[in-house]
Structures are given as C-alpha cells and as structure tokens.
Design a protein around this nucleic acid. Structure first.
Lengths: 356, 356
DNA sequence: CTGTTAGCGCATTCAT
DNA sequence: ATGAATGCGCTAACAG
C-alpha cells in the first residue's frame, strides 16, 4: 500500500489538513512548515492519490483524445503532440481509437465520461451529436479536430479543406489535366464534403465540366482506394490524373497502381492528401496537399487549455470559434503536365506553394 | 452535475446500499428489486463515478501503455490492439509516448502510478529498473513487450529477435552476400543486442569473418539510418547487402539510397525489420523480417488479463514467463543473389550528391 | 496560521 | 434481503 497524506502529516507532526495546504504550495501554510512537510513528503516518496483528489475536486486531470486510427499519419502526429503538450501541463491523455465507427464512438464517449475526463479532443464521426451536445452542456470542454459534428456548435480546429482541395485540383488543371479522378471521404463528413466542393469549384472556375463518374466517395479505408482506382483504370477513357483526397485510400490506390504496373507520373499523375513520412521516399515521390496536422494539434491544445485552466464556470468562452489551419501544396514527382513526354527537370525539385 | 447512486436509490425508494448491490448484478439483491433499480438507473441515465468507485475498490480500470512512438508501425499495431482488447474488458488505456527517453519514461511511470493504474504494458527503455521493480513489488501487473528491462524479472512478451536476425542474415548469405552491413538498435536494448547476436551467429556458422565496420548500432531514429547508410556507401569496398534491423532507421536508409540513386536490388540488396504497409508497394517491394507485432500485442494482453482478473494477491503468478513470438522472413523484391549484381560501382560514385 | 469537521460517491461490513 | 454506518484519501469550509 502506498502511503497517504495521513502518513506524511504524522511524520511531520502536523494535522492532515496542514500537510495538504503545505503541499499545495500556495503559501497557505507557514514558510518553515511548508518546507518541512514538503521535504518529508519527498523523503517518504509520497504521491497524492489522484482518484481521491479527483473525487473531491471534480477533476481527474484526464483528457480524452478520440481518433479514427493510428495508421493515418495525421492522427499519429496529433496523438503525439496532444499527449506531449498536455502532459507538460499535468494532464494524462486517454487515447481512444474508434475506427470511424459511430457506435464505437458512442461507447467511447460514455466510458470517457465515466472517468470524469476534464477535457475532450475528438475527430467526430459525424453522428452522436446529441451525446456530444450533452457532454458539452454538462460543462466539458470539447474541441473537435479535422472534422466537425454538424449537429452541435462545438469549438473546432479544422484544416482548410475547401482551399486545399481547390489548390490541388487547380494544380492538376494547370498541368493540363482535364479528366481528373477524385477519391474523397464519406459525404457525411465535413472534410469529405469540403474537399469535394473545392474540387468542383476549381473545375467550374476553369469551365471544365464535372463528370459524375470521376468522383468516388467512400469510407476512410485503403479498400476504398482499391475499388476506386480499379474503377477509374477500367473506364473507357480513364482519367489522366488522380486526386486522392481520402488519405486512408492512398495505400489502396498505390497498391493497385503498383500491381497493374501503371507508371507514375507518365501514365497517370497522382496527388495525395495529408503527408506520410514515406511519401517523400516513394519512387516517384508523391506530391501532396499537406493539411498541417501538427498545427491543428497545437492549436487544438491551445484552445482546450484556455478552457481547462479557468475555474469560473460562467466564463465567456461561449465564443465557440471555428479555426482553420492553412493547407499547402507540396510538389514532388508524382504529377506531370499532360502533354509532356519526358520528366521535366524542374519538377524534380520540391517546391512549396502556400494555399492559406 | 451528473446524478449519483443516491438519486437512483431515492427514485427507486431503496437505500443507497441496496441500489449499489442491485446494480452490481451479482444477485445480492432481490430479483425484482434488482430489475427495478436497474431499469430506473437506466431511465435516469445513471453512470457510476469511476473515481469514487476506484477510491473504494483500489482499482481504476485504467491500464497504462507506454511506447516509444507511434510512427513505428509495430507500435501503432500494438496500440490499437491493446486498446481494443482491453476496452472490451472494461479497461481504458492511457497511452504514453516516451520517445525512448529514460527521463520521460520515468516521469510517465510516476504519473501513471499517480492515477492508480491497474496494469501496465510497456516497451521499456532499459533504464529505470528500480522504478519498475518498485511498481512490480507494489503489486502492479506489468508486462514488457518488444524489449525487456534486464534489471528486473518482469513478465515479457518479445519477438524472436535472435532467430529473426539469424534467419535474415542467413537469407542474405544464401544469396551469396559476404559483406553484409548491419544497422541495428542501441546496444543497451535487449532487442538491439539480440539482433546483433543473431547476425553474428549466422556469419559464424558460415565461416564468414565479422567486420566491425559493417555493424552500425544507433538510436531508434531515421537519422541513424541516414548516417549509417552514408557511412557504408562511402566505404572503400561497400557492403553488397544491407540488413536494416532497426526499424526507425529504415526510412533514413531508403531516403539516402533514393537520393544517391542506388538501385535496389541491383547495386545493393536491402532487408528490413518489422513490416510497414508501405514496404509492400515500394518499388521494389522491401523484403522484411516480420516480428509479429500483432501476436505480441495479443499475447501481452492475454498475460496481463490473467493477472488483472484475480483478486487473490498471493496467487501463483510468480512464474514470470518470458514469451517469444516467432519472427518470419517475408521475401519480396529488394534482395537478389550477389552474382546477378552489376559491378559498376565507380560510375555510380561520381553522381553522389549530398542532400544535407 | 493551524486543527477539527464535513463531505466527494461508492462498496461493504454489520445489524436487522 | 435490506438499511444504517463506516471509510477509501483528499480538499475546503469552519473555528480557534
């Protein structure tokens, strides 16, 4: 059994509450007493019981982080950053993976609430709006990242997806492509819809007609990429460029292209969404729209901490902001002008264009 | 404020303790009472306070999972599996990333202990043995995965690293390679040393002399791969095959090979360790030694749950087993017989470009 | 500045 | 089978 405040108090010959005050470090006790109690507590190796403290103070120092998966590099980045930064503030992160499944998300939210989390950062599936609303109105600080739950007005830190998709599509159009296949996320998700809208807007701006068959919307899963790219490749007149704006699908797409020996970018230009370490070392290196996952994570933590800190329940935090983190195009080697026969030397150098 | 057991009891017109017993579901209350209390609790949306319960029962239903990072696919796999399986058993997982830093590991262990975790699954850095020992003797069930802390006798679920490295090296030897560069983890880690020993044993078995210069041991980080592969490539007579038995280093190695336009497997055979989805779609597809991360995770959870379940403190779990999960060679396209290799090394060297 | 007292919400022992 | 009482370890309001 680990020792308790009582043990420390006895050893220091003070009452249990004096010990508590001394250790709180807020100068509620005599200078000398405080020092002595602290020293003794240290010598004894005393550690306060978080459960007991939480029961009393109604705060667990636990923050929930709910993500779809860890394979998606953006989520991995978010997880590491959130954990690191909140850790520095004395919070522990409970990481939960939902697989983008609303039911799993629902169960997760219940358990997190059971554990009396002090805050929540979540990539919402889009469902369970009522549940999130209830948590929100119970006073739990919530920050949505990457996606938003449209049923509730929650603080959200999102990528600039409409712009990102627009910049990406425009880039491909600039290269002369007119038949651009788009693989995008489920339409029920905000990021899915926004990326689609960016694509459509870019096309419209250039007066390029939209072909329904060139848009494939599916789950955030590699399988989606497999199905979609096969469908595109099997078309009478296949697209000359593929915009894979569904990150999880990228793997499936690259797999199919590899299997069918489609040469990139000679036969097909590929533009992906959200960076992955190995995209840079892939041959050819994959050009991408970077959604700024690290920035999203950092901003989300900022917003959450702003609300974690203060005790005043009625504080003016009802300005539930929606923040956008700029996306940018990172040009590598997987796209080429439609007319060009040979690789353009300049295309080999990575260029970066801001899309903010 | 969420409602408490007291509210449920009042609504059901029973005492608070009867309500507690009814909800425990262990038949400690009258059948009808139990049903009624349960129904009312459900209608009211009652959820027990985990903190209060934990304070009383000395169990938090929290399990700590301590990993180096999330980029390493093996760790990602472990994290998802552990979280999923323990979640099904009613445990929440607190995931902590240490970056393989002993100090961070130490702080992490303290906070986890503060939160009164019920169990711990950890990839130890190798240090902090005394701290782990203290947690262990305090009764906390601990399972080490992937690596072992040699200072303490803890239950461990490891990869069959000696065999894995042996199989991999033998494979390269079978292909005719004699100068095989090895990039491996820090020598202070068990997995690092074991892989090295497997490599050495294979060489010895074939009567191939060991060249110190062909072994590079470094931190689990891409940078290690960069440094090591540059060193190898710059040698008078470079190795004909590279065994990258330090997973994090793989990325760095492939980056350098890509930058220097070293053709795989024509100029250099590459064998990596621990799978990555992308290895399969890389051109050429990377052959690997699969360490069976999923099996490790599942077995670790099995072992942990065996100890989580039972209340008897003095149970016979002192048989701290060490388990090995079989490794296997997955042959893809990145290795080839040495005879088939183009011996045109000098022309290649003229093109070397430093990428800083 | 310090000690005494009273809960936080729950599980559990002791009566009934 | 149920109710009353106790305490897990801690913080905070109340006295002194």
């Amino acid at each position: 059994m680990s020792l308790t405040l009582r043990d420390v108090a006895q050893a220091a010959r003070v009452s249990i509450s004096t010990a508590s005050r001394a250790l709180s470090g807020k100068g509620l006790a005599n200078r000398k007493t405080e020092q002595r109690v602290k020293r003794i507590a240290d010598e004894l190796g005393y550690r306060p019981n978080t459960l007991a403290r939480g029961l009393k103070t109604r705060s667990s120092r636990l923050v929930g982080l709910v993500l779809h998966n860890l394979m998606n590099a953006s989520f991995g980045v978010v997880a590491e950053i959130v954990q690191k930064r909140l850790g520095e503030e004395g919070y522990q992160v409970i990481l939960c993976v939902t697989g983008d499944d609303p039911e799993q998300e629902s169960r997760t939210l219940v358990t997190l609430a059971d554990h009396r989390i002090d805050g929540l950062i979540i990539v919402p599936t889009g469902k369970n709006g009522d549940q999130l609303a209830r948590l929100d109105s119970s006073g739990l600080p919530i920050v949505c990242v990457v996606r938003r739950n449209e049923a509730v007005e929650l603080e959200a830190v999102l990528a600039a997806d409409p712009e990102g998709a627009h910049v990406g599509t425009s880039y491909l159009l600039d290269l002369g492509h007119r038949r651009i296949g788009l693989i995008v996320g489920r339409e029920e998700t905000t990021s899915g819809r926004e990326r689609l809208s960016g694509y459509l807007r870019a096309l419209r701006e250039r007066g390029v007609g939209v072909e329904k068959d060139l848009v494939y919307s599916g789950a955030y899963h590699p399988e989606t990429g497999v199905t979609a790219s096969r469908k595109f490749l099997d078309m009478e007149s296949p697209p000359t460029a593929l915009f894979v704006a569904n990150h999880e699908a990228s793997l499936g797409v690259l797999r199919v292209l590899s299997e069918r020996n489609v040469s990139i970018p000679d036969e097909l230009s590929i533009l992906c969404y959200e960076d992955l370490p190995w995209f840079r070392w892939h041959r050819p290196a994959i050009s991408i729209i970077d959604n700024g996952a690290a920035n999203i994570a950092n901003l989300a933590v900022d917003r959450l901490m702003r609300r974690l800190g203060d005790e005043s329940e009625n504080s003016n935090h009802d300005e539930r902001g929606e923040f956008r983190v700029g996306a940018r195009l990172i040009i590598r080697e997987s796209c080429r002008p439609i007319s060009a026969r040979k690789p353009d030397e300049s295309a080999r150098k990575a260029e970066i264009m801001d899309a903010g």
